[in-house]
Simulated scan of single mutants.
Amino acid sequence: MVTGTVAEVHTFGIFVHIDGEPEGLRTGFIRVPDLTWSRIDHPSDAVEAGQRITAEVSVAETRSGQVAVSLKALQEDPLIRFADQVDRVDRVAIGSITKIIPLGVFVQLAPDVEGRLHLSELTDEPVEDPAQLVGEGELITVTVAEVDLRHHRVRLCAADGAGSHAAPPEAPERRTSARTSGQASAFDPFRAPGHEPKHEGGHHRAHGWPPSSPRRPAS
Rank of each mutant, 00 (worst) to 15 (best):
Q75V: 01
I94G: 14
T54R: 01
A60K: 12
A73C: 07
T54D: 04
V92P: 08
T98K: 04
S70P: 07
V86M: 07
S70W: 06
L71W: 01
K72Y: 03
S64N: 13
I94D: 13
E56I: 02
Q85T: 13
G95M: 06
L74I: 05
E56C: 02
S58P: 12
V86T: 03
V69Q: 00
S96Y: 10
V92Q: 11
Q85G: 12
S64K: 15
P78A: 09
V69D: 03
A83K: 01
E76G: 04
A68K: 15
T54A: 00
G65D: 07
Q75N: 01
A73Q: 10
A60G: 09
P78G: 07
D87E: 15
K99G: 03
V69M: 06
I97C: 02
S58K: 15
S96I: 11
V86I: 01
F82L: 06
Q85F: 12
E76C: 10
D90H: 14
E61G: 04
V86F: 05
S96F: 08
L74C: 06
A60D: 12
L79P: 03
S64P: 09
L74V: 08
V67W: 06
A83E: 05
A55G: 00
K99Y: 01
S96M: 15
L79Q: 00
V67I: 08
V57S: 09
D87A: 15
K72S: 09
D90M: 14
L74M: 10
K99E: 01
T54S: 01
I80T: 11
S70N: 02
T98D: 01
I94V: 15
D84H: 11
T62E: 09
V89M: 12
L74D: 06
E76W: 09
G65Y: 02
A55P: 11
V67K: 01
Q66F: 03
L74T: 08
P78W: 08
A60H: 10
K72E: 11
V86R: 03
E61I: 00
I94A: 14
A60Y: 11
V59K: 13
S70V: 07
T54P: 00
S96C: 14
T98V: 02
A73I: 10
R81A: 13
E56N: 06
I80E: 14
K99H: 00
